[in-house]
Amino acid sequence: MRKTILQGLLRRPLSEPPLALDDPDIVTLARDLDLVSQRKLGRGLSIRAIDAGSCNGCELEMHALGNAFYDLERFGLRFVASPRHADVLAATGIVTRNMREALLRTYAAMPHPKWVVAIGACARDGGLFAGSPVCEGGIGAVLPVDLWIAGCPPTPRDLLEGFLTLLQPRTAAVGSSRGEKSGRLAER
């Protein structure tokens, strides 16, 4: 074990340089979102993940955020175990009828101020599962969504960019590496 730890200390870190959130080819997020969230949150963001009906693809990429390459904690971002400790609800999937109640209760358990980030194609409008008679629709059908991160699933880079826009003072925006644009949901 000692050898593994020593090697880890001696090798160059794998963490990638911080993202530059200045891609011009992206949707511009509403300025007030950034200002408000930055003033309230400072430089830290506690995220509570909830799967409202995902295929688990988005969960895999959220897990990847913790690996040495993305290392999300260096940005002040962390996933927390309880909604009572969370600033942000990161919700994935179409909302199934069977998860509606749990989603509402999780949101209700979070202290104010709070934000909802919908993650992935299903979370926006149901994606491929839209129209299912046993589902409610996207996250926005049940909760007020502040930010949507595009992708099926979004890559860890997409996710990082999305979460960081909540913390950046500039008017930043989120783009997906897969072409589709993330952004603040129109209906909000």
């Binding site: 799967d51 409202a52 009906g53 995902s54 295929c55 688990n56 693809g57 988005c58 969960e59 895999l60 999937g93 179409i94 199934t96 009828r97 069977n98 998860m99 749990a102 491929l128 599962f129 129209g131 299912s132 008679p133 046993v134 589902c135 099926c152 699933p153």
Partner: peptide, 27 residues
């Protein structure tokens, strides 16, 4: 809890759309 009604969505779907659904039964 994450019952999305896959079988019902599959029924009547074009093959290409159904293949995409199949790829999201368990990501």
């Amino acid at each position: 809890y994450v019952h999305r009604g896959v079988e019902r969505l599959m029924a009547g779907a074009a093959l290409a759309a159904a293949a995409k659904l199949a790829g999201r039964i368990s990501g």
